[in-house]
């Protein structure tokens, strides 16, 4: 049935815009806006490899890093909207940046559309092993007793991890002091040593130290518990109402991409995500596959733009 509908859709497409009749008919480029070897790159290569086998078509992964992801995103936003130039974007590069950057080279909600969500990773709030706070409640009480003195680390000003702590501060109405680092690893060293009180870090980067008792995990930022840390409560379970944040990775395209191309891409990515081996491979990276239909994905992107945008404004962070 599905196939018939697809065929009908394709025929309809054939009638209106003949150029897209046989999409894909040439190599498709997936742009990665971050450095090679990072998580975004890994997911881009995964999508390229699986769709490539599925469609027997060539996929090229191209790294265009710089300006916190804006260079690659801008490149795709201004590319021909024919489905042959795609972006493997993230919550950071595409939901946070549009508000964080004072000048944006493109308009996020007008120029880009989220074709399909690929994966989601949970973040975890951790403290050093000897820290007095043993729960979110205790940590918040500590912060309330000495305003502005409790410190938290992040992987950078305006990063998803920074904003995750801002949301906690806002929800609980406490004043805490931000200490930015360049990346997660050096920040965690100071958290472990107790020089910084806490940090919200990417799940995969801290699971090892949590199990090795070098870090205490107080809460996960998602609405569901993290598979690798079944004993760690979610923020909502720990008493932070309405707290639900995750880092995501998705395939974006120029906004004027023809609908049938967008639907075809979305359907194919969802099929790939539903394969049992996918889940296994993503879990090894600390991520979970998130199949989402095309319309939900489109709406999700718009709501994420607003959600992260509000957080950026609340944090006061800005990049020239």
């Amino acid at each position: 049935m599905k196939r018939v509908m697809l065929a009908v859709a394709m025929m309809l497409g054939l009638g209106t815009i003949p150029a897209h009749a046989a999409y894909p008919e040439k190599a498709i480029k997936i742009v990665v806006p971050y450095a090679a070897g990072g998580t975004a790159d890994i997911f881009a290569r995964f999508v390229a490899e699986r769709l490539g086998t599925k469609w027997k078509n060539e996929f090229i992964v191209e790294v265009r890093a710089g300006a916190g992801g804006n260079i690659g995103s801008d490149y795709v936003a201004k590319a021909a909207p024919d489905g042959y130039t795609l972006l493997l974007g993230t919550s950071g590069s595409n939901a946070v940046n549009p508000t964080l950057y004072k000048t944006m080279p493109y308009k996020a909600e007008k120029d880009l559309v989220l074709v399909a969500l690929v994966a989601e990773t949970a973040n975890v709030l951790v403290t050093g092993p000897n820290h007095p706070g043993n729960s979110i409640e205790e940590l918040v009480a500590l912060a309330r007793s000495k305003p502005g003195k409790v410190t938290y680390a992040s992987s950078g000003n305006g990063s998803v991890l920074h904003l995750s702590s801002v949301l906690l501060a806002n929800k609980k109405n406490v004043q805490i002091l931000h200490v930015p680092y360049k990346g997660t690893a050096p920040a965690l060293i100071d958290v472990i040593a107790g020089r910084v009180d806490f940090m919200i870090a990417n799940g995969p980067s801290v699971v090892g130290d949590i199990k090795g008792k070098k870090l205490k995990a107080l809460a996960a930022t998602t609405s569901k518990r993290v598979a690798a840390l079944p004993d760690v409560p979610t923020m909502m379970e720990a008493g932070v109402e309405g707290y639900d944040l995750s880092s995501w990775f998705g395939v974006l395209a120029p906004a004027r991409i023809p609908d049938e191309v967008r639907l075809k891409l979305n359907a194919a990515i969802r099929e790939v995500l539903a394969e049992p081996t996918t889940r296994e491979r993503f879990l090894a990276l600390g991520a979970e596959p998130v199949p989402m239909d095309a319309e939900t994905a489109r709406q999700f992107f718009l709501s994420e733009l607003k959600k992260w945008g509000d957080l950026v404004r609340a944090s006061g962070a800005q990049v020239d």
Binding site: G66, A67, L100, G156, N157, G158, P180, K182, V319, D320
Partner: peptide, 18 residues
């Protein structure tokens, strides 16, 4: 780009130096 404030320094308007 300065890590803590996001201010551009010594870039002389050249975006590539950001």
């Amino acid at each position: 780009t300065d890590v803590q404030t996001g201010t551009l320094r010594y870039t002389f308007g050249i975006a590539k130096l950001g």
